[in-house]
Amino acid sequence: MSKPDPDEVSRQLAARSLANDDPTGWFEVLYRAAEAGETQVPWERTAPNALLAEWAAGSDGHGKRAIVIGFGTGQDSEFIASIGYDTTAFEVAATAVSAARRHFPNSRVDYVEADLLALPAQWIGRFELVVECLTVQSLPRPLRAQAIAAVVSLLGPGGRLIVVATSIDPAGDLNAGPPWPLTEAEIGIFGRPGITVVRQEHFPFADDPGFGRWRIEFARESP
């Protein structure tokens, strides 16, 4: 008997979590089910996100601090650490944290449990690189502004924020998800005084041009 479709499982779990006014609780349930072999994490990968890896090619992070938001199965975090950054990576699901520590026993990454919507105060403004890859889009639209403000708050003076996210045409079904892809207007929420867009790119999906990927680099001004 085949396992249920992982995307459908995640949608069902998210719907139940939202119905219980717990928009992030479904991540722990999903990771536990994956650990038990009942499903797969839909975003599981064996390599870093290609758009992130291409952006960071040739970078040297030695002497700098990075944070990876919603590290998933850890591939992006390990990649960022491999180019020299002192890397912190967090997930809201405790099971994801224990799985990453087990999968990468000799990792230089500090894998921790934390909630994007309630960040530790000591992280604010601390990092020279903030990596937001496909995490904000896993939160429902009413939480977007709060989540995006939290992402930006991690960026230290002179730092860089790299955002990779699924895009959707505004004429599409904005309520279908998860994920709930980001519109261009939502990308604009990342911008605020002192935060500027260095480069914004869009890559439509060849098989469905109504969707695609954003890759945007933001910079925070130095004092």
Rank of each mutant, 00 (worst) to 15 (best):
M1V: 13
M1G: 14
K3S: 11
K3D: 07
P4E: 09
P4D: 06
D5W: 08
D5K: 05
E8M: 15
S10W: 13
R11G: 10
L13F: 03
A15K: 10
A15S: 11
A19Q: 08
A19Y: 05
A19P: 02
N20V: 00
D21M: 04
G25F: 01
G25N: 01
F27V: 02
L30C: 05
L30K: 06
A34P: 07
A36H: 11
A36Y: 10
G37F: 12
E38S: 15
V41A: 08
R45F: 06
P48L: 02
P48I: 02
N49Y: 11
A50M: 14
E54P: 09
E54A: 15
W55N: 13
W55M: 12
A56Y: 08
A57D: 14
A57C: 11
G58N: 12
S59Q: 12
G61L: 07
R65W: 07
V68F: 03
I69L: 09
I69Q: 03
G70C: 00
G70K: 04
F71Q: 06
T73N: 14
T73E: 03
Q75Y: 02
D76L: 02
D76G: 04
I80E: 01
I83W: 14
I83M: 12
I83P: 07
G84I: 10
Y85E: 06
T87P: 01
T88W: 07
A89T: 07
A93D: 01
A93Q: 05
T95L: 11
A100H: 01
R101E: 15
H103D: 15
H103R: 15
F104D: 10
P105L: 08
P105H: 10
R108C: 13
V109C: 05
V109K: 03
Y111S: 04
V112M: 11
E113H: 08
A114F: 03
L116V: 08
P120C: 10
P120K: 07
A121M: 13
A121G: 10
I124T: 14
F127G: 01
E128A: 12
E128M: 07
V130L: 02
E132T: 13
C133I: 13
T135Q: 05
S138E: 10
L139H: 05
L139N: 00
L139D: 02
L139Y: 03
P140D: 08
Q146I: 13
A147I: 03
V151M: 01
V152M: 00
S153E: 07
P157Q: 13
G158Q: 05
G158M: 06
G159A: 01
L161F: 02
V164E: 09
A165T: 03
S167Q: 07
A171K: 13
G172M: 02
G172V: 05
G172D: 08
L174F: 04
N175P: 01
A176S: 14
P178S: 09
W180M: 00
T183W: 04
E186A: 11
I189A: 08
G191I: 03
G191H: 10
G191E: 14
R199F: 01
R199K: 13
H202V: 12
F205W: 13
D207G: 09
P209V: 14
G212E: 10
G212A: 12
R213Q: 15
R215M: 09
R215I: 08
S222P: 10
